[in-house]
């Protein structure tokens, strides 16, 4: 298809006096898109609007060209994986996915066949006959993903699908999502962890306090990060001497000194990282730790919100 997969125009959602999403206008294209934002940013509200669970308070959202609220046909092209860890626990994985395949309109036999296929696809083939009650967190996440896939939707809406999975499980789920995208599915996946989304896709939508702060490529966001002074912490001996040296660097705009640490802000992190070995050698300091205090989403959000 041509055109955006998801298109929001002035989209707002409020719950009584609380604003969940505030006048959002954005487009989500084909492939995988990461929806990034801290907890309470409005990610789940956006995904619930996209998956037709909520009706916009103002504006509109179109998914694959149709509005999803009370639109069964549009929902047939969307597969939603919720963040809640909820199931009909008495069912087996196969029964669960089969039932939801049937609710999606597949005949009983076809639903069972298709459920077995998608469960195999998510790596649950060996466990699909067992009751969900006994599943691990990772297995439950995969089962939720399988139910979103069972009716072969064009768009997958995944709300925090990696939360709670162990590191190996996360890697496998990421690989699976990438395989699905490679097979032609559009995926929108929410997370509050930048590197997690970065490992999945280079296209992101940043959301905070109910507003879209930025949309585009991760590299562009990185560049935005680079535009504002980076905070870097250096743990070493001879901290006072080192501070004296770094403060003379033209791109360093502020320095705080502690007994065995220097905290500084630089407008050119690359130049700073290139210069720091020389500075350490110059003062004869032994480096214990060098860490960026900025390399997380919250710093980026704070910066973008300030702009």
């Amino acid at each position: 298809m041509s055109g955006p997969v998801i298109e929001a125009r002035g989209l707002s959602k409020w719950y009584g006096a609380v604003i969940g999403l505030n006048d959002v206008t954005c487009e989500v294209g084909p492939g995988i898109t990461g929806l990034l934002g801290p907890n309470g940013a409005g990610k789940s509200t956006f995904l619930r609007l996209v998956s037709g669970q909520l009706r916009p308070s103002a504006g509109e959202v179109r998914v694959l060209g149709a509005t999803p609220w009370n639109a069964p046909e549009a929902l047939g092209r969307i597969g939603f994986c919720p963040d809640e860890d909820a199931f009909w626990d008495g069912l087996s994985g196969l029964e669960f996915v089969t039932a939801l395949g049937r609710v999606s309109g597949l005949p009983r036999a076809r639903a069972r066949e298709r459920a077995a296929e998608v469960l195999e696809q998510v790596g649950m083939k060996e466990h699909m006959g067992r009751r969900i009650r006994g599943y691990s967190k990772g297995m439950r996440q995969r089962t939720k993903l399988a139910q979103a896939l069972v009716h072969d939707p064009a768009l997958l809406v995944l709300d925090e699908p990696l939360t709670g999975a162990d590191p190996v499980g996360r890697r496998e789920l990421r690989a699976l999502i990438q395989r699905l995208a490679a097979a032609g599915k559009h995926v929108i996946v929410s997370s509050h962890v930048l590197h997690e989304v970065e490992a999945l896709t280079s296209t992101v939508l940043l959301i905070a306090r109910g507003r879209v702060l930025a949309a585009g490529q991760v590299q562009e966001l990185r560049a935005l990060l680079d535009e504002h002074p980076h905070r870097i912490a250096i743990r070493c001996d001879r901290a006072r001497e080192l501070a004296r040296t770094v403060v003379a660097m033209p791109h360093v705009v502020g320095v705080d000194v502690e007994a065995s640490a220097v905290h500084l802000r630089t407008t050119d992190p690359a130049a700073f990282y290139a210069a720091i070995p020389g500075a350490l050698l110059e003062v004869g300091a032994t480096l214990e730790e060098l860490a960026s205090e900025d390399d997380d989403l919250s710093a980026l959000f704070q910066y973008l919100v300030r702009r």
Binding site: Q53, P72, L75, F80, P82, A86, G105
Partner: peptide
């Protein structure tokens, strides 16, 4: 129980 979402995001009218 959090299971309603599975039914209300399907192509079957609510």
């Amino acid at each position: 129980e959090g299971t309603l979402v599975y039914l209300f995001t399907r192509p079957l009218p609510k």
